[in-house]
Design a protein around this nucleic acid. Sequence first.
DNA 1: ATGAGTGCAAAGGCTTTGCATTAGG
DNA 2: CCTAATGCAAAGCCTTTGCACTCAT
Lengths: 151, 151
Amino acid sequence: MKASLIELHRTADERLQRDGQRYTANRRALIDALGGSDRPLSMPELLERSEGMAQSSAYRNLAILEEAGVVHRLVTSDDTARYELAEDLTGHHHHVICESCGSVLDIDAPPELEHGVHAFAESVAATHGFAVSHHRLDLVGTCAACAAART
Amino acid sequence: MKASLIELHRTADERLQRDGQRYTANRRALIDALGGSDRPLSMPELLERSEGMAQSSAYRNLAILEEAGVVHRLVTSDDTARYELAEDLTGHHHHVICESCGSVLDIDAPPELEHGVHAFAESVAATHGFAVSHHRLDLVGTCAACAAART
DNA sequence: ATGAGTGCAAAGGCTTTGCATTAGG
DNA sequence: CCTAATGCAAAGCCTTTGCACTCAT
């Protein structure tokens, strides 16, 4: 499901134009950074990968990219946000979150499990009049690195 | 699984003592607030329910209560934290999160689904050397109130 | 008395906003 | 040209910390 970078840029451009936004060099750099990662990136990580971009521009552009449905902002356990490409661009996946260092890893769940979650979501929607737009299934614990460091 | 308030206070007291902490009036008030709610509470909500408590005391005591394993802090979508009783005091449950107003509702998942999640967690633990301590399964969308307001 | 707990106010850290400058169409 | 986008610095907001005071043991 992972789209090529070229295709990714095309899609981003389309969605921004639909919102009356331009696909500038800064926005391109952010998409490159996110498209080249197999996990969500924090602001420091994004700035490292985006030579010379002002932090305020990064925040502003990420907000615009999220608005356009290209990027997704997520908050896990620590209070720093992380960003990833929208799910329809990366394929549905879940997160393994280290509560010690805050790092996040992408991971896929077996189809049976996804089915179960969808059924659950539908029953909740029906029961509570709640419009479920998506679900999150995170595994939280300690990553190998942190477990080792804690020795 | 929901313990009586009396039992809850006893447990909180025990766990705090184990940490060399006292079970003060402020801490009691926080536990009362959380124990009397069927959903996680934000700081403003907690202060409303805790007559005259200083915000700094609330933050400090919640941190101590979390350390003692009585309270759990969670961050959902907006950047305000919410607090609930530790899972072993409330029973395992999941959250329905409104991305419009940030409200959170507690909910139970069917046992089959929980089984599936556990199996998944174990396979990830084995594959990635990641120590899974717990999981989160959230349904994200728009609550009935927000859907109505948006008319 | 003695240290934990509290409230108030100040400081911190991530994120957002104001404003003058630069650049894309 | 004219508006959108950028960078810098200032402001905001939630949360944490410093400090003097109070309370319980």
